[in-house]
Computed example of a mutant assay.
Amino acid sequence: MDRAKDLARENNDETAEGESIGVVEFRLSNEKYAIESRYVREVLPLKELTAVPCTPPYILGIINVRGQILSIIDLRVFFELPREAVTFATKILVLSSNEMELGIVADAVTGARSIQLEQMQAGLPTLTGIREIYLRGVVGDDLVFLDAAKLLADKQILVNEEVEE
């Protein structure tokens, strides 16, 4: 009985040390990215994409997800990264908040895990420009942690133009 209490106490000490956060990891142009899993509604294969004329180049198009039309954003274009060919591994991460839902293209989804917040660094000098705006932090040497709340709240991503007839 005492051993069980000691083990339970040790486990509680580990969780008290640092807060962790669940993330979904994915690749964009041979770089590793993560986004908080609470914003990822689902992961879908990239198929049946419909291009939308007169939209910015980072709007890849729209898809129908069980009757809901979602805009698909190509973060590679948005972040000025090289584009890769669409393959079987290419996925759409459907991001969701109270205000907005949209999909982002990932060259591949590599997994999900928990990250200790104390492992997160402010950023890297190579992450400048538009990527820096949506940066929440960097974990280790190469995992860029994006701020999904900023992405979903950014009015620059919205395309809401009316065309006069």
Rank of each mutant, 00 (worst) to 15 (best):
E14P: 04
G61S: 05
F78T: 04
I157V: 13
R131D: 04
G140I: 01
K47L: 12
Y33V: 00
E84T: 09
D147T: 13
E164M: 13
L124S: 15
I73M: 09
R27T: 00
T110M: 00
F145M: 15
L70K: 02
E162H: 13
I62V: 15
V77G: 08
Y39R: 02
V105R: 01
E118S: 15
Q116G: 10
I92T: 07
L151R: 04
Q119H: 13
Y58K: 12
P57T: 04
I69Y: 06
L46A: 04
S97R: 00
K150H: 12
Q119Y: 11
L124C: 07
V139Q: 00
I21M: 14
E17R: 14
P82Q: 06
Y33G: 00
I92V: 12
G61A: 03
P45N: 13
L127V: 15
D74K: 01
T128G: 05
V65G: 01
L7P: 05
C54P: 00
S29E: 03
E161A: 09
E42H: 03
V86T: 13
F78V: 03
Q68Y: 03
K32R: 11
V94K: 09
T126S: 15
D107W: 02
K91Q: 13
V105C: 01
R3Q: 14
E101I: 14
E118P: 05
A89F: 06
A89E: 14
V65D: 06
E118Q: 15
I130R: 15
I130W: 08
S29C: 02
F26R: 04
A153T: 13
G140L: 01
E31M: 14
L49E: 00
R38P: 00
P57Y: 05
Q68F: 03
M120C: 11
A153H: 12
E19N: 09
A108H: 06
R113A: 12
L124F: 05
L146G: 07
Q156L: 09
R3N: 11
V24N: 02
V139D: 01
A8N: 09
A108N: 10
V138C: 02
S97N: 02
N64D: 07
Y33P: 01
Y58F: 15
V65N: 09
R38S: 12
A85C: 06
A85V: 14
I35A: 07
D2P: 08
E19G: 11
Y58N: 12
S96E: 15
E17Q: 13
I115N: 12
E36A: 12
G140H: 03
I21Q: 14
Y134M: 14
E84Q: 13
K47Q: 14
S97T: 02
G123Y: 10
P125A: 05
I115C: 07
Q116H: 14
N11F: 08
L135Q: 08
V163H: 10
V65W: 02
T126A: 15
S29Q: 04
E164N: 12
E101A: 12
T15Y: 15
T126Y: 11
V52Y: 05
T55I: 07
G67T: 01
D107T: 03
V163F: 15
K155P: 11
E118R: 15
L44G: 06
L117N: 04
P45A: 10
N12P: 00
V94Q: 10
M1C: 11
L44S: 07
D2Y: 13
V139W: 00
R113E: 08
